[in-house]
Design a protein around this nucleic acid. Structure first.
Length: 738
DNA sequence: TTCCTTGTCGCCCGG
DNA sequence: CGACAAGGAA
């Protein structure tokens, strides 16, 4: 009678109704994994085995946890707000906020995203006079994060060579700096939380008693630290251990680069005394040919837990393969196919263009744009990572906590108010001397300064900055969050700055979108404080794209496609060096990880799958010639249908021996004048255009490479053979066509 | 101090 | 190719 259990297959049903014990569910792609997880939670609550209070469910992405919450709330009429469902990072943040004192953190501790973290590292290196040649900041970041994800503090890291010793030493210093500033990077959220549970037995027992059921999604993606966190929290081995229900697929493990360890699955079976592994192998997503191809591919991997997807549907269409001469041609081919799919009645939003790396999207976007096909690009630059948003957030952070040095450094001279590198340095010296924050130093400096009468001058310099922040804090006091954001945007001058800035319209739009983000945050969260909003901004880099839900093609990397499905999938750039990625050659089991990535990509398709590769491709600013991906050889020939190009060859795509200088400037001009198609200037009844050879009676001959302005103000940039670049006013320069 | 040009270096994935 | 830092000119 229980309606939530209707229509499940025997394996799904078994997993959902399993009694209070730890279990491992091997769930293949499209086998109803999320349904099993959410239905189990609903079933546990509905049958009275546990209250919503006693459940802890962990996912990897915000998207997945949102999905889980929505599905549960449609099954059960309960308040889902109090439930502990979220990402590892989100849940650890929640715990650390509740017990910040025990964790040794300030109440309003800030979370650093990757870019913030890199900035802190760079700043620290500068202070310590460490050259970024000796110690590349990115490598340092990688080192620190890796150590943390293994659960290691600086004192735990073994170092056998002098370079590692230097890294460890820096790790230590970095830690001290973070503690001093009250900031926490992503892996620190987990490590801090883990250490809190280890050290504080009372607290740990409190949570152990509370959570009798722990459920984990995408378990194959857990790293060592996450595994240890789960083990502590579940109190495995004791008489009161929680039932830990993990769902995963070793074939879809694609996050080894960030410490994911499939070994956790085998270890879990052992450590948690798993008596039975349930396999979900029936696929409800794809037609047979697609599954057969994916199965054939993944069989080339060793050490799999073993699983074979099958479907009760027919074999469907063959897999379409296309061999393109150039990346440009590959894109045009895709455009043509999309048009005919659209004519067949397939929704554009049901078509995905997948690629290995974000850089590949540009060529595709270009073709789609020219064909007037609407598309949406996922990933890449996220909302909260945008420069203008970062600036706005820095103002907010400084409102929340005046002593946030990192926030202060970001915006003390943005928009510019006459505080240069020199002035900042003075403040830093002052702060170091007093052992105070930069804000205190600024306050001290401005209070000693003479009072300036001129109101315009008073807005400048350190004094102006102090006055600004003081006004802003006063204005925002007791104001609801969205209004605080609004006040900050106008008072800070950010809106004004981008308003007059050329190409600033998008940024103004984004800044206004931040008010919307704050508004919806206030509606959704039960704690609507500024601090919580800031944490939210760091943890959820944000799919705050304005045109969500619009009928548009979906462009994304294979990684971000995990968990999704589409009617038709175009898997592009199947070339050696790109997919498998060349970096994977040097990584242990790199090729197997790439193959799993390929497997994930293929199994996104429900009905139609296109595989394409190109003989040449623009990469790193130069044309590269690649051979087809080895993965194509691993798919049985009888499942594939090789397509021929039906297009006329477009002369523009011929490689010509055009001067490189000229080619560069053409794309440059396109980039600078988005709305304009051609780059020509009409001045004094003479047509000048980019790329034109000209002569000047003093500078000699050259080529027009850029222009700006109109009428009397029209200027051209000319690259002269003898004297190089010059900007010239057309009215006076007396150029002649050569 | 600020803006603009030039040069260098990286270019894969998420919270 | 594009982001970003460094360096030079106003």
């Amino acid at each position: 009678m229980s309606s939530i259990l209707a229509g499940l297959n025997p394996e799904q049903l078994e997993a959902i109704t399993l009694p209070h014990q730890s279990a491992l569910v091997l769930a293949g792609a499209g086998s109803g994994k999320t349904r099993v997880l959410t239905t189990r939670i609903a079933h546990l609550i509905q049958s009275g085995q546990v209250s919503p209070h006693g459940i802890l469910a962990v996912t990897f992405t915000n998207k997945a946890s949102k999905e889980m919450l929505t599905r549960i709330s449609t099954m059960l009429p309960i308040n889902i707000r109090g439930m502990w469902i979220g990402t590892f990072h989100g849940l650890c943040n929640r715990m650390l906020r509740s017990h910040y004192q025990e964790a040794g953190l300030p109440q309003a501790f800030q979370i650093l995203d990757v870019a913030d973290q890199l900035a802190v590292i760079k700043r620290l290196q500068k202070n310590l006079s460490i050259s970024d040649k000796d110690m590349p900041p990115r490598q340092v970041q990688w080192f620190i994060n890796n150590a943390k994800e293994e659960g290691q503090r600086a004192s735990n890291v073994e170092s056998h060579d002098s370079f590692t010793r230097k890294l460890v030493e820096f790790y230590q210093t970095y830690e001290q700096q973070c503690n001093k500033d009250g900031i926490v990077d992503f892996p620190e959220l987990l490590l801090r939380c883990y250490e809190l549970l280890i050290r504080n037995e009372v607290l740990c027992n409190h949570y152990r008693e509370r959570f009798s059921h722990i459920l984990v999604d995408e378990f194959q993606d857990t790293n060592r630290l996450q595994y240890k966190w789960l083990r502590i929290l579940s109190n495995v081995g004791s008489s009161t251990t929680a039932a830990v229900f993990v769902v995963g697929d070793d074939d879809q493990s694609i996050y080894a680069f960030r410490g994911a360890n499939t070994g956790n699955m085998q270890e879990f079976e052992h450590d948690f005394n798993v008596s039975k592994v349930i396999k979900l192998e029936q696929n409800y997503r794809s037609h047979g040919n697609i599954l057969d191809a994916a199965n054939a591919l993944i069989q080339h991997n060793d050490g799999r837990l073993g699983k074979n997807l099958w479907t009760s549907e027919g074999s469907g269409e063959p897999i379409r393969v296309y061999n393109a001469p150039t990346d440009f041609d590959e894109a045009s081919f895709i455009v043509e196919e999309i048009k005919s799919l659209r004519d067949e009645g397939v929704d554009l939003s049901q078509i995905a263009l997948l690629y290995r790396s974000n850089a590949q999207s540009r060529v595709l976007e270009h073709s789609l744009f020219n064909a007037a096909l609407p598309y949406r690009v996922y990933g890449g630059m996220r909302f909260f990572e945008r420069l203008e948003i970062k600036h706005a957030l820095a103002y907010l952070r400084l409102i929340a906590n005046p002593d946030d040095d990192n926030a202060l450094l970001r915006i003390i001279n943005f928009p510019t108010r006459g505080i240069g590198a020199r002035g900042v340095e003075q403040l830093q010296d002052e702060a170091r001397l007093d052992g105070s924050s930069l804000w205190s130093a600024a306050l001290k400096k401005s209070s000693n300064a003479p009072i300036i009468q001129d109101p315009e001058k008073a807005k400048r310099g350190v004094g102006g900055f102090v006055a600004l922040m003081t006004t802003m804090r006063q204005a925002c006091e007791n104001l609801p969050l969205p209004q605080t954001v609004e006040q900050m945007l106008s008072l800070s001058g950010l809106l004004g700055y981008y308003h007059v800035e050329r190409e600033g319209a998008d940024r103004v739009e984004n800044l206004n979108e931040l008010i919307n983000a704050a508004t919806s945050f206030v509606h959704e969260a039960d704690d609507d404080s500024l601090t919580t909003f800031l944490a939210h901004a760091s943890l959820e880099a944000g799919d705050y794209q304005t045109d969500t839900g619009k009928e548009a093609l979906q462009l994304m990397t294979v990684h971000s496609a995990k968990g999704l499905e589409f009617h038709s999938v175009f898997l592009t750039g199947l070339e050696e060096g790109l997919f498998p990625h060349e970096n994977s050659r040097n990584e242990t089991n790199g090729q197997e990880e790439e193959r799993r990535l390929m497997y994930v990509a293929m199994t996104r398709a429900c009905r139609r799958l296109y595989l394409s590769f190109s003989q040449s491709r623009m990469l790193h600013g130069q044309t590269r010639y690649n051979v087809p991906s080895r993965f194509l050889d691993e798919i049985p020939e009888n499942l594939m249908k090789w397509l021929q190009s039906t297009q006329k060859i477009d002369v523009r795509h011929f490689k010509s021996s055009v001067d490189k200088r000229f080619k560069n400037t053409v794309s440059q001009s396109l980039g600078n004048t988005k709305s304009r198609i051609s780059g020509s200037i009409n001045a004094q009844e003479t047509q000048w255009h980019i790329g034109q050879n000209v002569a000047h009676n003093k500078f000699g001959s050259g080529v027009i490479i850029n222009y700006e302005g109109q009428g009397n103000d029209a200027r051209v940039q000319v690259n002269f053979d003898r004297v190089g670049m010059k900007w010239l006013l057309l009215e006076y320069a007396k150029l002649t066509s050569a």
